[in-house]
Amino acid sequence: MRERKPLDPARMDVVIAVLIALVSLTTALAAWRTNIVGSSAAQANRQGLIDAVKKGAAQNQSWRRLYEEAGYTATFAMESAAADAMEASEDEALQAAAKNMRQYLLPSLQLLSEPLGTQEKYLRSDGTYDLEKRLADLEAEDPDSLAIDPAASFELADRYASEQRWLTIGTVLLAISLFWLGLAEILSERGRATNLALGVGIFGASLLFILIVEIAAIWGRGGVL
C-alpha cells in the first residue's frame, strides 16, 4: 500500500476545493450583508427626507396660522383704535357708529384673533405682539411633528454608509483570498503551499476584519442590526 504524504496533491486538491467553496460562500454572505447595509442606509436617507417633508408641512401650517392670527389681531387693534377715536370725536354719528362697532364688529374680530390678540402673555410692553412666543406655542400643540428629527435619520444613514465602506473592503479581501486559493488549486508544484498559506491567511484576516466592523457598527447604532 502506498504511503500518503501530508501534502499529497490529490488530498490537497480536495482540501483547497473545500476551502474555495467556503471562501466563496463567505464572500457571497459578505456581499449580501454589504448590500443589506447599503439598503438600510438608503432607507434611512429616504426616511429622513420623508421626515423633512412632514416637519416642513407642520411648520408651514404653524406659520400660516400664526400670520392669520396676526392679521386678525392687527385688524382688531386698528379698529379698536378707530372706535376710540370715534368715541372721542364730537361727531354724534361717529359716536353712534363706535357704539355699534363695539357691539358687533370688534367682538367678532377679537374672536378671530384668538389667542394671539386676546391672551396677555402674547402682548409685549411696547404694545406689539410676541409672534415668536405664539409660534413656539403653536408648534408645541403638535408634539409629534416637533419630535420629528430628519437629522437623526441622516446620521443613521451615514453610520450605515460607513459600515458599507468597511464591509466592501472586507469583501474585497475575501476576493483576494479566493484568488490565492484559486492559484493554489491550479498550480500543482512549486509555490502551491505558499499560495495556500496566503489564501488561508487573508481569509482569516478578512473574517476577523468583518467581525470587528460588524461589532463596532452594531455597537455604534446601539445594538440595531
Partner: peptide
C-alpha cells in the same frame, strides 16, 4: 382722526 388712529396703530404693529 379716525383714519389716523388706524394708521398709527398699524404703524405701531
Amino acid at each position: 382722526e379716525v383714519a389716523q388712529a388706524r394708521s398709527d396703530t398699524g404703524s405701531a404693529l
